[in-house]
């Protein structure tokens, strides 16, 4: 996997990222790496699709794109068993409390991918609408944004690999 080399350096910086410091212990650093490796390669997404992006999410699950190559295939219908919520589709005011409740039900650590223009910023429904939430990050914290309307399945896979890169940089034991 050479995706890290292909991501531009400025894209790897994200808010709240913990940068490695030279005085970390060898043992816990290695333990962290093992935990992050395990976490990043068994992300179980929640089946959560509201509109068009959900179809592309299904396409990513099918035989042609096959997200099970990365350990994503165990899509769960219950938030209690999921690590990752791919918000695929517009979120409206009436749906927002439901989404928040779903997110709250997920066990830690949990990750969010905002898929498509609607979830990032309201997208096509930003202007002149009365019922659309202008960006899902008003409701739940988002880890990775993937633009497109809808993004193609490869773009979704790219976002999931980008999320894996983020998880691999996390610190579990090295908390200050």
């Amino acid at each position: 996997m050479d995706i890290k080399n292909n991501v531009p350096a400025n894209k790897l910086i994200f808010p709240g990222q913990i940068h490695e410091t030279p005085d970390g212990g060898f043992l816990i650093t290695k333990l962290d790496e093992v935990i992050n490796w395990a976490r990043s390669n068994s992300l179980w997404p929640l089946i959560f699709g509201t509109s068009c992006c959900a179809i592309e999410m299904m396409s990513a699950a099918d035989a042609k794109y096959d997200w099970s190559r990365f350990g994503f295939e165990v899509a769960r219908a219950s938030p209690r068993q999921a690590d990752l919520i791919i918000v695929a589709g517009t979120i409206v005011m009436k749906m927002a409390p439901v989404l928040k409740r779903l997110y709250d039900q997920m066990p830690d650590p949990k990750y969010v991918i905002a898929m498509g223009a609607c979830t990032i910023s309201g997208g096509p429904f930003f202007y002149n609408t009365y019922s659309v939430v202008k960006g899902v990050d008003h409701i739940i914290p988002v880890d990775v944004y993937v633009p497109g309307c809808p993004p193609r399945p490869e773009a979704l896979l790219h976002s999931m690999i980008t999320l894996q890169e983020k998880i691999k940089n996390e610190a579990f034991f090295r908390k200050s």
Binding site: S51, G89, M95, Y130, S131
Partner: peptide, 12 residues
């Protein structure tokens, strides 16, 4: 209404 996106209002 969980995905009511006010398309008819937008079209105006």
């Amino acid at each position: 209404g969980y995905i009511h996106r006010s398309i008819e209002k937008m079209c105006e």
